[in-house]
Simulated assay, not measured.
Amino acid sequence: MKLLKNIFLFAFVVVIIYLAFFIPKRIRIDGTWSVSKILLDGKSLIDSKKDTLFYHSLELFKPKYVAHIDGDSLIIKKGEHKIGTKYIIQQGKNGNHLINLTSNEQTLNGTFQITFDTLVTSASFYNVYVDIVSNSTQLSLQKEVYVKPWKPRPIERGKP
C-alpha cells in the first residue's frame, strides 16, 4: 500500500513539473477578429479612404468585415457575403511561420506568410495584429485582448 502511495505521489509531482514548464509549439489564433484589410488578387474589398485615423477612431464606423477562426477554419463575413477557408499553420525553414489555406476562393489557395505583432495599450489591454500575405493577396486581422490584472499577495506580518 505504501509503495502504491509513493508511485502515485511521484507521478503527481512529475505531471505538475511537466505542466509548469510545458511550452506549446502550436500557435492558437482562435476567436473573433476585426478585419482591417482584405486584398484579393490586387483588388481591395475594403475602401481605402476608410483607412484613415479619423475613421478608425470613431466607434460608429468600425470595419464591417469580421473573421471567425475556430479549430482549422477561417470564415470572413460581411452581412450575407462569406469567404470560408481551411488552414494549417506550420513553421518554415527560416523559422518564420507559414499558413496553408484551402478555399473555394481561388486567390486564397496556397501557402502564405503569417506575421504576428502585439501592441500593449494599457496594463490590462493589448492589441494583436495578424498579417497573412502572399504575392497579390493580403489579409490583415486585429483583436483587442483583455488580460485580468494580477492580484498581489496579501500582506503578511514580518515580510516585506
Results as ranks from 00 to 15, higher is better:
K25S: 15
L45H: 10
K148F: 05
L9P: 08
L108K: 01
Y55C: 10
A11Q: 11
F61D: 06
L119C: 08
T137M: 06
T121I: 05
G31P: 02
F54T: 15
K37R: 11
D117R: 13
D117I: 14
G42I: 06
I75S: 04
T121A: 02
I29F: 03
K64S: 15
I23N: 08
S134L: 05
K82E: 09
Y18A: 14
R157M: 10
V147M: 06
G79T: 10
L3Q: 09
K78T: 11
P63Q: 07
L98P: 00
L108P: 02
T102F: 14
K64E: 15
P149V: 07
I75D: 04
K49C: 12
F125Q: 02
N109E: 01
S34T: 05
I38G: 01
L53W: 14
T107W: 04
T85G: 06
I132G: 00
K50R: 14
S134T: 04
F21Q: 05
Q106Y: 13
D72W: 02
F10E: 04
F21H: 07
N109A: 04
S136D: 15
I114E: 00
T107D: 10
I99A: 04
S124Q: 09
I76N: 00
A123V: 13
I75H: 03
D72Y: 07
F54E: 13
P63R: 06
K62A: 10
L74E: 03
I76F: 07
V120Q: 10
F8C: 12
G92I: 04
Q142T: 08
N135Y: 10
N6L: 15
K159F: 15
L53N: 13
K143S: 02
S136I: 06
K43D: 09
G110S: 02
H81W: 05
G71N: 11
Y65N: 05
D70W: 12
R28W: 09
V13N: 03
I99N: 01
L60R: 08
F61W: 14
Y65S: 02
I88H: 07
L139G: 00
I99W: 08
N96E: 13
S44Y: 15
L53Q: 14
Y126C: 01
L74G: 05
L58I: 12
S73N: 10
R157D: 07
L19Q: 11
L139K: 03
G31V: 12
I16P: 00
D30R: 03
P154H: 06
V128L: 08
R28T: 10
H68R: 11
K37C: 07
K43N: 12
Y55H: 12
I88G: 01
K5P: 12
N94A: 10
H97R: 10
Y126D: 01
K2W: 15
K77I: 14
K5S: 13
T121W: 00
V145R: 07
S140K: 06
R157K: 12
G84N: 12
T121S: 03
